Amino acid sequence: MDWDDLRVFLAVARAESLSGAGRVLKCDAATVGRRVARLEAAMGAALFAKSPQGYALTEAGGRLLPHAEAAEAAMTGAAEALAGPDGSLTGQLRIGAPDGCANYLLPQVCAEISDAHPGLEIQIVALPRVFNLSKREADMAIAVSPPSAGRLTVQKLVDYQLHLAGHEAYLATHPTIRSRADLSPHRIVGYIPDMIFDKELDYLAETRAEMVRLASNSVSVQMQMLRAGAGLGIVHDFALPFTPGVVRVLPDDIALSRTFWLIRHADDRRSARLERLATALGRGMRREVARLEALASTGALAASPTRISGAA
């Protein structure tokens, strides 16, 4: 059995289509189809069932999957064993994260990791949804809630704070806010209710508002709405230093705490490379959240990212 054929098998199993696998493997769908057919002939069994929805694993394919994943882990381990003598890491690392984390935290943290490991290719995938690690959409994912199912390992990264906020120009031209009771005439910016992908992101009850008047599924868009003087919204403290003029409102009364979790496929715990990267990511996230929240509490602006020592 050829490892390259197993690699093609894994790509199709995860993408559930020949074209999707081809994009991952950087080859055309016809070539992927021929490789699958060759593997099926060698195995003497159909590994995929084709339907209008795509390629689904057959019973035989399901039995092959864990063995193919084990082979993949072994190949990765062999590459790690041959890494450079300076201990630097190479290869690709894809991190999936909610867009608030991806926009305001990961650029600085990943820059430091990249400095320590110049041969590493880091990709940040910012999507307002939960990542499917079983399909290898990412090597590791950051989430606001720990998953309750799946062959995954979960590690707490860092707690972070959120407050109600608005732009100084908006606050200067709208009714004064001294308590929650004063919020009713104010326009609320927040998530699109039916697109909230995690219960931890449902902040509406904290503002006592009946509905969000200006909404987006993106934290960055919400922040730009506040920056434009559109209203009030619950925002991450670590984002405030990047949004001049946006300040906390009722900080002693409306304060939330949430947690970022690092999620990985269970098999990846055997990878020394990914263990080192997970450690560096966690260390960097904790330092950067602490730095930015300190700036937010003093009203200072982050002119440029601070270098985080000890990236790995």
Rank of each mutant, 00 (worst) to 15 (best):
Q108S: 13
E69P: 05
L277W: 00
D5G: 08
K26H: 09
A15S: 12
D86W: 06
I196K: 02
A97D: 03
F260A: 08
A46P: 05
R136D: 08
A29I: 04
V154Q: 02
S145D: 11
L214K: 07
G62K: 13
R38D: 14
V221P: 01
D99P: 05
R264N: 09
R291I: 05
R129S: 06
L232I: 06
R270T: 14
A169P: 00
V36M: 03
A228L: 15
E168S: 07
T176H: 10
R248I: 10
M140A: 06
A15G: 00
E137K: 08
V8R: 00
T279W: 12
A138W: 05
D86N: 13
R283N: 07
S297I: 02
K26C: 12
Q123L: 15
A41I: 05
G77Q: 10
G62V: 06
M43W: 04
L152Y: 05
G310C: 01
P66Q: 06
A141G: 03
A303I: 15
R291Y: 11
R208W: 04
P147E: 13
T298C: 13
A312K: 02
P185E: 15
R187H: 09
A165L: 08
S304T: 14
L133V: 07
L301K: 11
T58C: 12
E137P: 04
R227L: 13
A29H: 07
R227M: 11
R180V: 12
R213W: 11
S184A: 15
V221K: 14
I124D: 04
G44N: 10
E40V: 03
S257D: 12
R14Q: 14
G166E: 04
I122D: 01
C27F: 00
L157A: 11
R34S: 10
L64T: 02
L105W: 04
I113V: 12
P85T: 05
A30P: 01
L164A: 08
R129C: 07
E40L: 08
R307S: 12
S134G: 14
D267K: 03
H174F: 02
A60K: 06
P128F: 00
S88N: 10
S304C: 05
A45L: 05
F48R: 01
K156V: 11
D159R: 10
F9A: 04
E40F: 06
R23W: 04
L204I: 15
M211T: 15
A11D: 03
L25W: 01
A56S: 15
A116C: 11
K199Q: 11
F197H: 15
D28L: 03
H236M: 07
T76G: 12
R227A: 09
G150C: 09
R287Y: 00
G96I: 08
E168Y: 07
D4S: 14
A278Y: 02
D252N: 11
L57A: 08
